[in-house]
């Protein structure tokens, strides 16, 4: 035990210190106490909320999810009760969680997102804002799904001016010219990038000839996307000097370590939480054991230490 305590799992991004590099992916861990019976939130590096929008959204019609090989498709459609409900009814609970709170937001355009960021800037409980510019399941005009670099640039710039909080921009492989988007987000002042959001996919019921999701297409997540997610994190870290929060199919400490070795500052468990609510906590414990066995004493010793030379 005394040996273990020498290992420093903490990770700093901007001015925020996270007690360890494990967090959860937006939309996969509820919005308040859903997983409280199973996990000690205080043991995680951060708690990330489901994406909230300025006004309430009812989400997409059913069916919204469908299981596919080693993963699932979802088209929830950002169902949420809106920013004011979040501040009034969710924040009081979330403020008691003994770790950093990352609030995920989406909006219809740069100025709406900037307004939301300003409102959240005054909430002390919020440690960071994650800009979800990449939900693949939106068909209406009330949520901006940035596909091009210039759109992302405009949004990040405006939001940056409205908040001093740690700003994270969430990207998806659906974006055109991914690396350009990533680069412009950094230039526009984002403090970190998170990736990946889900990848668009679909499934069809051959008996009814109907799509398995009412939205026809949905976002693919889970272990099926992990190698792709890892590749994105790796490539971004090759090109840009920016902290990355990696996610996509992480189910165990070993998966999480892959992302860290590829250069991620933090790693989130997502779909795996549905299967094993303790997944994030198990990752923390597993990483600690791994570090001890390998003789690493801090995250810096291992982060980005991929050996590509043979």
């Amino acid at each position: 035990m005394s040996q273990k305590s020498k290992i420093d799992l903490s990770t700093k991004i901007g001015d925020v210190t996270f007690k360890n590099p494990i967090t959860v992916a937006s939309g996969t861990f509820g919005n308040t106490d859903e997983y409280e019976p199973y996990v000690d939130f205080g043991e995680l590096g951060a708690f990330v909320t489901k994406t909230i929008t300025l006004n309430p959204r009812v989400g997409n019609p059913m069916p919204r999810i469908f299981e596919t090989p080693s993963g699932m498709l979802n088209a929830i459609g950002l169902e949420n009760k809106g920013l004011e409900d979040y501040i009034e009814n969710k924040l009081p609970y979330l403020s008691k969680i003994k770790t950093n709170l990352i609030t995920s937001i989406a909006g219809k355009d740069a100025s709406e997102l900037a307004g939301m960021a300003k409102r959240l800037d005054s909430c002390n409980e919020v440690s960071a804002i994650e800009l979800n510019l990449s939900c693949p399941n939106i068909r209406d005009k009330n949520v901006k799904v940035a596909k091009h670099a210039e759109e992302v640039e405009r949004v990040v710039k405006e939001v940056r001016q409205c908040t001093n909080k740690l700003l994270i921009t969430k990207l998806s492989p659906e974006m055109d010219f991914f690396m350009e988007v990533a680069e412009l987000s950094v230039k526009s002042g984002t403090d970190a990038l998170s990736m990946i959001n889900t990848i668009k996919g679909m499934a069809i019921n051959v008996n009814t000839l109907k799509p398995m999701l009412s939205n026809v297409t949905g976002g693919l997540s889970g272990p099926a996307v992990r190698p792709i997610a890892l590749r994105y994190v790796y490539e971004v870290k090759q090109h840009l000097d920016i902290p990355v929060i990696g996610m996509g199919g992480v189910a165990s400490w070993r998966d999480a370590m892959e992302f860290i070795i590829a250069g991620a500052h933090m790693v989130a468990t997502g779909t795996s939480n549905f299967v094993n609510p303790r997944a994030p906590q198990d990752c923390v414990e597993g990483i600690e054991n791994y570090m001890q066995e390998k003789g690493y004493s801090s995250m810096k010793d291992i982060r980005g230490k991929l050996q590509t030379s043979v």
Binding site: E34, R64, I65, N74, I76, F274
Partner: peptide
């Protein structure tokens, strides 16, 4: 998906 109210899939 989750069975606990977290994913809003149901």
């Amino acid at each position: 998906g989750c069975g606990v109210g977290a994913c809003l899939g149901c």
